[in-house]
Design a protein around this nucleic acid. Sequence first.
DNA 1: GTTGAGCGTT
Length: 536
Amino acid sequence: MDFVQVSEEEGDEPIELPAEEDGTLLISTLQAQFPGSCGLKYRNIDSKAVRGVRSNEGRLFPPNADSDWGEYVYFCVFPKENKRKSDDNLENSTAKTKRIETRLRCTDLIVLGLAWKTTEDSLREYFESYGEVLMAQIKKDGKSGQSKGFGFVRFGSYEAQMRVLANRHLIDGRWCEVKVPNSKGVGHQVPCKVFVGRCTEDINSDDLREYFSKFGEVTDVFIPRPFRAFSFVTFLDPDVAQSLCGEDHIIKGVSVHVSNAAPKAEQSRTHQGQNYNYNSGNNFGMHSYHPQGNHMNSGRNGHHRGNNQHNLHGGDNTAIGNSHSNIGSGGYGMGSNNNYGGNLGGGYTNSSNHNSGGNMNRQEAGIPYNRQNNFHGMNQPHNGNVGNSGWMNRGHLDMPNLQALGINSQGSSSSNQGQNMNNPLGVGLNLNSLPMNPALVAAALNQWSLLGNQLQNQNQDQQGGNFLSWMAQNNGGHSNSNINSGGRKGPNNPNNSGSSAMIKGDNSASNDQQNGNSWSNQSSGSQNSVDKSNFL
DNA sequence: GTTGAGCGTT
């Protein structure tokens, strides 16, 4: 195996990194040792100039034609933190400060709720689908060696870490919670959402998405309706969002202004969600955009009905490697999750598990859940890659980490816990039993742009129902009902008997205009006075 | 031999 000598900065002590068989060096390998780096350069002996190393699709290519890295010591290239040079005079430009540090540095993550049987190997195997795992550890009893049911994992890239933190995790049959140790909440400390002012009415969400995607992966676009001359764009990477703040951009010939969407969000968060009353019937629209990727849904606890409402709206419905799988059976969220994007590849099982895109069902198949190339090219902000070619298999973004928010009914359904994933629904969902913290929920929903869509027109391309709107509707009178009755058969669901699955917003594929309408905007009392704060 | 909220022998 060939090794490439790499140091963070020219002159630093190099680390030898293993090259691949074809002689290339994976950027992920580089980033494992140099988080935040995006490329390599070296000092050419002859010209004395610094030369960049060719980079393509997550690989770095040796400068010599014979796949030889030579005897050079390469040093890291880090992305420019901010294109604007003006107002940040506190930043100097050393390579180390460009590493954007605390925010982008990977930390150990605690994994709670592991099955007793989960081993360090299986833990690692599970998380490797998100990116390189530098460490996977199970905490065990010193004497017996028995797992204590939690562990730690560390990733080589911040992006992998973000994705992991943003999702729920079914590991060896247990829904596990992943958090930054000793932290409460989920999500990012740095806001991912920007406010886009001076919009005109003809700038639609696709325009915004297309335009802003060149700076980084856009996870959501929200345009308040009725038209208010502003919109919100959410990026996967908070630093991309931050880098754009304060800038003017021209979209469709219109100069729009990007600014921070955070301040009022902070107020909302710190004031314990004062604007959000979840039992009043307010209708919180669905986070509308679901990037390509795996949408893993379990009906076990009845929390995932919202996933049935994935609107893949026009233009975005290219569905690269989509995989929407339902795991479990009989629960809410079952049965109506059908194929998006026409790539149904897996099998339906007899318990309403819908595996599309070839992902295996962990429960049924007993093999690791395969996220299939979900991991895209790591930190590549401002790389000019747009759309499908630039962002591969964007996944893990479909659901907030509700468990980490305390929206978790494991505790309320203990009799049904454990490995019995195929009969979860004696439990139903007792909404009042959910330990919800409105502030946390609001924060999370804001994080995922789940709030504020209530004003969107049903026929907009950015809409749909969601978990909370469903909650709001069904819990209007604090009724203590377990919602586990009735239901109707999903039109495209061959396995849904309709006996227990209650389906709202049937996913009758390609139903942009219909999907979710059955339960969006049904409530009363939502805010109609729209200003920026209503969306933060 | 059990368990199910937690925070790691560095």
